[in-house]
């Protein structure tokens, strides 16, 4: 292949991913408003377009068109880079997510490992935003976020190991292919539970939204942000929600199985993902927030031992089955 064709091809892929991300974020915000609205006896957005479908588009445009306010007394470079660093990992993760048997931007052997590593990066953006804003609420929010993400990273990663043991691969496509006979959510039910809970904690979703607890610390780490910098945080939050749900589908719910036809596979994959997202939104409109210390106890004293036990049991079973064969 000529080098410029390869470059163009890569850029085109990136553009598609980028477009897809924005579209996803907008759809998710609209969906959240509608789902929460109907759960609370109200309608959600109604005015722009049929059932208000253009509302989030206008909201995003409004946020992008706002003045870029940079407060006094902040750590300027850190402040400016924090939202960008929040957004880049989410963007990059998409290149490794397979949507159908061969529909993946970059397919390589340890994509699961790489995706989890990238997700962990968003911690740094919270810390950067909290530290640089020169605001005590932000600082508390940032530190809470860092503490939370570190303690939930571990059970999250450990919970996927059960799947990796069963599939024998770190490649997401192969993990999905290994689920032809049975979805891993059934033998790995504990792993699925841990993954989904810790995943929600990882992306600061209710009931684990301590870093931006608006009743306690105003808006947490993004108190001082406005305009498109805030939009970056905001979109990243929803993209992360999509990523966690998509990962859960890929790892535990059989990805695009039982279809192999590309179009049907993509649709099946998206439907499964959106069902999980709906569950997350359902949780969001039902549960109150944890307190940080209770939440840490829950993470270290319950989730971590549970995920370790899960690995142990999975390994034991897989080995025994191998021996019997």
């Amino acid at each position: 292949m000529v080098w410029w064709i390869a470059l163009l091809w890569a850029l085109l892929k990136l553009m598609i991913v980028f477009l897809f991300i924005f579209l996803t974020a907008l759809i998710l915000i609209y969906m959240l408003r509608k789902v929460m609205g109907h759960m609370q006896y109200r309608m959600g957005p109604r005015h722009h377009g049929p059932h208000g479908i253009w509302q989030t588009v206008f909201d995003a445009l409004k946020l992008l068109g706002k003045e870029d306010i940079i407060p006094d007394g902040i750590d300027k470079y850190v402040y400016i880079w924090a939202p960008i660093i929040a957004f880049i990992p989410s963007l990059t993760v998409f290149t490794f997510l397979p949507f159908a048997p061969k529909l993946v931007a970059a397919n390589f052997e340890i994509s699961l490992f790489f995706v989890l590593a990238l997700l962990g990066l968003s911690t740094i953006s919270l810390l950067m935003a909290g530290w640089s804003s020169n605001n005590k609420y932000s600082l508390i929010g940032g530190i809470r976020g860092a503490a939370q993400l570190i303690s939930y990273e571990i059970p999250l990663v450990l919970s996927t190991i059960g799947v990796v043991i069963m599939a024998g691969s770190l490649n997401l496509t192969e993990i999905v292919n290994a689920q032809t006979r049975i979805w891993y959510a059934i033998p790995q039910i504990i792993g699925f539970f841990i993954f989904f809970t810790c995943g929600l904690a990882e992306i600061n979703h209710t009931p684990f939204d301590m870093p931006e607890a608006e009743s306690e610390i105003v808006s947490g780490f993004n108190t001082e942000y406005s305009g498109f910098r805030f939009a970056a945080f905001f979109l990243a939050e929803f993209v992360n929600l999509f990523i966690i749900c998509a990962l859960a589908v890929l790892l535990f719910l059989g990805g695009w199985k039982p279809f192999t036809n590309p179009v049907a596979a993509v649709i099946c994959f998206l439907i499964k993902t959106y069902i999980l997202i709906f569950v997350a939104m359902w949780i969001r409109s039902t549960f109150p927030r944890f307190r940080l210390d209770q939440f840490m106890n829950f993470g270290w004293k319950f989730m971590l031992p549970l995920s370790l036990a899960n690995i142990f049991i999975t390994g034991l079973v897989v080995l025994t089955v191998d021996k019997i064969r």
Binding site: D209, A213, S215, S285, T286, P288, R289
Partner: peptide, 16 residues
């Protein structure tokens, strides 16, 4: 109370 605990739904239920 719901808002303060971080749940948004009770607020609307109560006000309705």
């Amino acid at each position: 109370m719901g808002l303060e605990a971080g749940a948004f739904t009770p607020f609307l239920f109560g006000f309705k």
